[in-house]
Design a protein around this nucleic acid. Structure first.
Length: 282
DNA sequence: CTAGGATCCTGTCAGC
DNA sequence: TGCTGACAGGATCCTA
């Protein structure tokens, strides 16, 4: 769920609230959601690796956090700052039924909520972060990648559907279901095309689109973040403001007016404009 | 090695 | 109202 822009939004927010703050206590409410022995220390850095967040402590340990599909991080202190899977938890009284871990600081608490329990917080040695299997496998993010590099990867996975290919974090890092659909729409590529069928020009268009949709989202605070400084319930609104196809089935394509449809590709709900994104052409 | 499908888990919604 | 199946902003594991 939270994709790269949402995780980056969380990272920036936490930088304001918990950097150089000391963890007083960690409470685990769900065994599955916390791996390792809770470690207490001061937060010295907050790093992001793809969709994973890493809090480096001053005791050689790091907390790796992955929100997967339904994870959320909600900092509740003098102000409330929340990001991740959108839900009423952002303004709810916490902890609640979906709270899995509570990290307490001197002047606030960080709640890790996760409806489906796919996400987790894991304690690892700071020195071993780069060796962590998830992090080790990550490819470059779109803005760090050359067209040639991506094109060669598409050739290596030439028989995979292009949508499945760009969702694979070891091929290109950061896209999830929303931004994959948006990038494919922007570059007019049908998600069921084989990766190997893309020309170099199409690969370039797709890479450019991936950069643009994610950057735009980061600039607007992600699709799902919310800052409740004023407790006004305002939410990050990438979907409302910028999404061209995602969850817009039945509505007109912003480019040509044709109805957006929802199909199933690589096991994921997928939104396309059937006129702009042709399977057979090119 | 790649490609595709099942799987982890809880909750919601459409359809009967 | 109650049940059932499908589906969900992710990644891994298993199989062929």
């Amino acid at each position: 769920m939270p994709e790269l822009p949402e995780v980056e939004t969380i990272r920036r927010g936490l930088n304001q609230f918990i950097l150089n703050k000391k963890i007083k206590k960690i409470t685990t409410l769900c065994e599955k959601s916390f791996v390792g022995t809770p470690s207490i220390g001061k937060v010295k850095a907050i790093r992001r690796f793809g969709k994973a967040l890493v809090l480096d402590l001053d005791n050689q340990k790091s907390l790796m956090i992955h929100l997967r599909m339904t994870g959320q991080l909600i900092y509740d202190g003098k102000e409330r700052y929340a990001a991740g899977h959108p839900s009423d938890n952002f303004i709810a009284i916490l902890p609640n039924k979906q709270t899995r871990v509570i990290i307490e600081f001197e002047d606030g608490r960080l709640f890790f909520n996760d409806q489906r329990k796919f996400g987790f917080i894991k304690v690892i040695k700071t020195n071993d972060v780069a060796e962590e299997s998830f992090i080790k496998k990550l490819a470059h993010e779109p803005w760090e990648m050359t067209v040639t590099e991506l094109y060669e990867k598409f050739q290596r996975h030439r028989n995979s559907l292009i949508k499945a290919t760009i969702l694979d974090q070891s091929i290109i890092c950061g896209l999830g279901n929303i931004y994959a659909d948006e990038a494919l729409f922007a570059s007019k590529i049908h998600p069921e095309r084989k990766a190997g069928s893309l020309s170099k020009q199409e690969t370039e268009a797709l890479l450019t689109a991936a950069c643009e949709v994610m950057q735009k989202s980061i600039d607007s605070g992600g699709s799902t973040m919310a800052t409740y400084v004023k407790a006004d319930g305002s939410k990050g609104d990438y979907l409302e403001k910028f999404a061209q196809v995602f969850r817009r089935e039945g509505k007109p394509c912003p480019r040509c007016g044709e109805q957006i449809i929802k199909i199933r590709v690589a096991g994921r709900g997928t939104h396309i404009c059937p006129r702009c994104q042709k399977k057979g052409t090119k």
